[in-house]
Write a protein that binds this DNA or RNA. Structure first.
Lengths: 348, 348
DNA sequence: CTGTTAGCGCATTCAG
DNA sequence: CTGAATGCGCTAACAG
């Protein structure tokens, strides 16, 4: 009756055998059992609705079959997409995922890390909000496989998986240059804590001029409109066809608001963002974005983890995934508005 | 060195005491220990970096301190908001949350339910995608506290928490009527599986006419534009000031696309949705929505669960939470476009 | 107040 | 191929 209430012992007695055999049946040694016994156990387990207690299993050496994931901001659609990717891949490998959100709070981050460890997770996927070097160091030394997702952590020698930020910036600049823009404003949230933001910002500073683009940057401590307006307004009136490049989805949202507030026509002033969002195709004439392959990134993270588990530690690896350009009207200087449809905008 | 590697015994020996005392120190009986002992244990535990193994604790009677949550669609921002609410409340009570996504797949749902049970969660928050009556029944009988979130399950006598759907529909109809619309099209995803969709649909059918509104409904099997266009087009040309009411966020997105495709001016043809989304204030002239109090709903779920755990089972409860109206330009028949700003749109 | 004794449900030696 | 025995890390009576 109670699904997870039936124990190994009950199954064993009902099948008229011993605990060990039942244990083997549900473990990796089923092949070492006679077909007859397998049959009996199978039936007994089924009628009892038996399911192994994964906590007990985790206690011994069998492994908890649990993976942990730390997410900096679960309300960010991009993060959710990553969670989804990781969860799918984990399930495909027979693992479950316990997700902890940190709301970008470094203190919470430490707590959650401890919690995850307390549940004996076999591996950890970490999308850090801060720089929790110390706790992560100790975790690594305690032998828990670790993978950093989307954000690196200072001096932590661990696998890192995420977007190829350099390539992304290059693609964005190439696209903007090709569309005839000559002056680009790069807007990012404060890059002090997040390695990804730094990488993108640095690359932008390096690569804009070589493409003949005048560059400016705006670093935001807040995504409030007030923080954006003055710079945006001045920039929009400056020389050369101008375009704004947004460092992530949150920034894109903030700037879309800014454009609207100022009555700027997207395209006339270019707007482009990293991270694809539901509504980017919807805001006329469509916002051009670089979409991240979140499922692939999530899957790569799980693969990494499992590789570490299998002991075959092929040195520290850094996976850089390429983005996909979704070109839309917001980076088209002479929009053919009449023919625009969201469908077209989805297939560059 | 290893955070979760140090065991109760090691702490006990270092503190020159017994396992029981250490156990008590970390349990609920710390008060029954002498200050001196507490001090010694405290130090020992600290130098060893000891953290209780929650799996082992869960094995005995101490409880796993784990709550499980089943989510129908983790990529739906509304669902994520619920997860966030539940997780916050759980953490505040010293519980961790293990979240399983079902991608609206009934089969996956059963699997995930089994997984959750296997981890000995102390309670379950369920946002069902299908009608997994049987598995839930057995779970209930096995004594696991259960709470249904946003969606009921047929004949399952369990606490249900969510929006007050009747009130929501009434508020929407009142608002639309007040704004001068006379004919309303209600668009919903297929209501066969989800109780919430049924409740809203039924209420709409009951309450439209009493308010002097002509009513029509459109039930969607797919959110593709093709599924929406014909009806929308015909409806927009029908008599009386017309407005469209969307049953949830996904539908709102689909219809915003439809409006754009047809070149319909929002407001002239009204558009209103249940569920607030990032971009609703952004699409000019702003889409009017009913926002759900997701944090409150999540917190209520956890409270319910913990009540059941405490044994004080105050009969089956149904929490109905009131939505909040965010009136924007999409339900204003004579928009004052020039003065429109997103900020204003956020504060009705 | 504190230590001692049993298991929780399972995986894993080790013998048959 | 199979069963009996031991212990994972912890909590819960039970005695002092």
């Amino acid at each position: 009756m109670s699904p997870s209430r039936a124990t190994l012992i009950e199954v064993a007695t009902l099948a008229e055998t011993s605990k060990s055999s039942v244990s083997r049946f549900f473990g990796t040694e089923r092949n070492k059992l006679s077909p007859a016994l397998c049959e009996r156990i199978e039936r007994a387990a089924h009628t009892l609705g038996y399911r192994p207690n994964l906590m007990a299993r985790g206690l011994k050496g069998g492994g908890s079959r649990l993976l942990g994931m730390l997410v900096a901001d679960i309300r960010n659609p991009f993060s959710v997409a990553l969670v989804h990717g990781v969860e799918q891949a984990a399930r495909a490998q027979g693992y479950s995922l316990i997700v902890c959100n940190t709301d970008n709070d470094p203190a919470l981050e430490q707590t959650q890390l401890a919690t995850l460890a307390a549940y004996q997770v076999e591996g950890l996927v970490i999308n850090a909000s801060g720089q929790p070097e110390a706790p992560l160091q100790t975790l690594m030394h305690s032998g828990v496989p670790l993978v950093l997702l989307d954000r690196e952590v200072n001096q932590l020698k661990a696998d890192v998986i995420g977007l190829d930020n350099a390539q992304a910036i290059d693609m964005a600049l190439d696209h903007l240059a090709l569309q005839g823009y000559r002056s680009v404003l790069y807007v990012s949230e404060s890059p002090t804590q997040a390695s990804t933001r730094q990488a993108r910002l640095i690359r932008f500073k390096q690569q804009a001029r070589p493409r003949g683009l005048t560059r400016r940057t705006l670093l935001l401590d807040s995504l409030e409109l007030e923080a954006v307006m003055p710079t945006l307004k001045a920039f929009a009136q400056s020389a050369g066809p101008t375009a704004v490049l947004c460092g992530n989805g949150n920034v894109t949202l903030a700037l879309a608001r800014g454009f609207q507030r100022l009555g700027l026509a997207m395209g006339q002033v270019g707007l482009m963002g990293i991270d694809e969002l539901d509504w980017c195709a919807l805001i006329a004439p469509g916002i051009t974005t670089l979409a991240q392959p979140t499922d692939a990134i999530g899957a790569a993270a799980v693969t990494c983890l499992l590789n570490q588990l299998k002991g075959t530690t092929p040195a520290t690896v850094i996976h850089r995934h390429a983005p996909r350009l979704l070109a839309r009207g917001s980076t088209q200087r002479s929009p053919t508005l009449s023919s625009f449809t969201p469908e077209q905008a989805n297939n560059p």
